[in-house]
Structure formats: structure tokens, C-alpha cells
């Protein structure tokens, strides 16, 4: 029988500590698949943040550098400047990239660093247990309160913001919800990595992700929840493309 689906080269079946229904591993899988397709996996360096993404430890085979909370884009800047032939990526959460590290993310983009920033947007702080993040929706509950516009402001649409800048070559948002969404996410990620590799430009890609545990939503209900609540605030699509 022909094998049509399996674990991609560079990943293993090691159990991770992610919660049921989490889509972090989908993002990792897409990264490994895209790097494999571009023949770049051994030539790639991933600047990892602090947060849930660490639960993927040991499950993928890419060079990594651990970064402090929010600083992955600055770390990636240093890596990229000293390794211009490598595919350099940062992997960050929404709190990491858009709250505590917003300056680092924004300025790496504005300088047009030769790197790809991959931002997992699940509208909540995951690892610390469900606090309000810069993308938490209006009315959404968190352990540090319910977001209200008059008090905690609005969810930040960072991809739209970066799309306005001159330097970035590719800026997009995709969802890791349905198989169809994931196919699109992979297409966008391939473009982002090619923009960096082939054109030497900065790419930013945001992945809308599930966090059933901290949202208090059953995994089976996440899709409906997101379609009704998340997608209207964070539309998927390309905000800037050099292709």
C-alpha cells in the first residue's frame, strides 16, 4: 500500500507536553515540512522563545537558540547578520512578539532583517496559565480580567501594522484550524521562507492557533468558537507580498 501521510523527516513520534487540541505542533510540523521542501532544514536556525513552544523540545531536528521572553527577533537579528546564508527564523507567541517584545519584532521588521518571524496568535498567555495577551478579544475572559475596550484597549492587529512598512517582503496571517486552513498556512509559510531565502527580505507570518485549555473551550468546540469570534477580528490573508 502506498504511504501518503506520515511523520516528516526531521520529526519524530516522541510524546510532547502540549495540551489536547493545541495547534503548536501543527506549526512545528509545517515549519519542518517547508524546510524539507526547500532543502533548508540543515541550514536553518530557529530562535525559540520562552513559553509553550518549549513543549516541542526534542521532537524536531533543527538548530535552535533559546531566547529570552520577547527577544527572539533581536536574537534572530544577530544570528542573521552573522550567518547571511542561513534560513533564520524566530518562533514567538503573541505575548512574546506583540507585547513584551513588540519593539524587537517591529524593529527587526523595519530594518528588513533577513529572517522569518513566525508568530503563534492564540489570544492568550498559555504557559503562565491564561492571562490577557495583546490579542485577547474584546469580552474574552482571562485570569487577569475580561478585555474591555475602555480599560484594556483593543486586540492588536500586528500583521496589518507590519504590512504598512516598507522593508518587509512578505506579511501574512493564516489559521491552523481546518485542513483547508492548514494547507493555506503552509502555502503562506513557504512563500515567507522563500522571500527570505531567495530575495533576502524580512517575512512575518502569524498563525491563528487553538488554546482550548486557557480559553475554557472544549477542543471539539474550538473551530466554531474561532470562526465566530477570532476570524472577524483577525482575518487571514496576505498583507504584503513580494511575489
Amino acid at each position: 500500500m502506498e504511504k501518503v501521510f506520515g511523520i516528516p523527516e526531521g520529526m519524530n513520534d516522541k510524546k510532547t507536553a502540549f495540551c489536547p487540541g493545541c495547534t503548536h505542533m501543527t506549526a512545528y510540523r509545517l515549519i519542518v515540512e517547508c524546510l524539507n521542501e526547500l532543502g533548508e532544514r540543515d541550514n536553518a536556525i530557529l530562535c525559540r522563545p520562552i513559553g509553550c513552544s518549549l513543549n516541542a523540545d526534542g521532537s524536531f531536528d533543527i538548530h535552535t537558540i533559546q531566547s529570552m521572553h520577547g527577544r527572539a527577533s533581536a536574537v534572530a537579528t544577530g544570528v542573521s547578520r552573522m550567518n547571511p546564508t542561513k534560513t533564520v527564523m524566530s518562533y514567538q507567541g503573541d505575548g512574546d512578539a506583540i507585547s513584551i517584545g513588540v519593539a524587537e519584532t517591529l524593529y527587526a521588521a523595519n530594518r528588513g532583517e533577513k529572517m522569518t518571524a513566525i508568530v503563534i496568535n492564540n489570544q492568550i498567555y498559555g504557559m503562565t496559565g491564561g492571562q490577557m495577551s495583546p490579542t485577547t478579544l474584546i469580552g474574552q475572559r482571562s485570569t487577569t480580567g475580561v478585555r474591555r475596550a475602555d480599560d484594556t484597549g483593543y486586540p492588536l492587529r500586528f500583521a496589518e501594522w507590519l504590512g504598512q512598512l516598507e522593508a518587509p517582503g512578505y506579511v501574512a496571517r493564516a489559521a491552523l484550524y481546518t485542513p483547508k486552513d492548514i494547507m493555506q498556512a503552509k502555502k503562506f509559510l513557504l512563500k515567507a521562507l522563500r522571500c527570505q531565502k531567495e530575495l533576502g527580505r524580512y517575512s512575518y507570518i502569524e498563525f491563528l492557533s487553538f488554546c482550548p485549555t486557557n480559553w475554557g473551550v472544549q477542543p471539539k468546540d474550538c473551530l466554531k468558537y474561532c470562526q465566530e469570534n477570532v476570524l472577524p477580528v483577525f482575518p487571514v490573508g496576505e498583507f504584503k507580498s513580494c511575489f
Partner: peptide
């Protein structure tokens, strides 16, 4: 903040 982390990335790689 950014500068020291750039140094970290450059040196680490």
C-alpha cells in the same frame, strides 16, 4: 535590551 540580545544571537551562532 535589543542590542544585548543581538549580541547573544551573533555570538551564539
Amino acid at each position: 535590551l535589543a542590542s544585548i540580545n543581538m549580541v547573544y544571537g551573533a555570538s551564539g551562532s
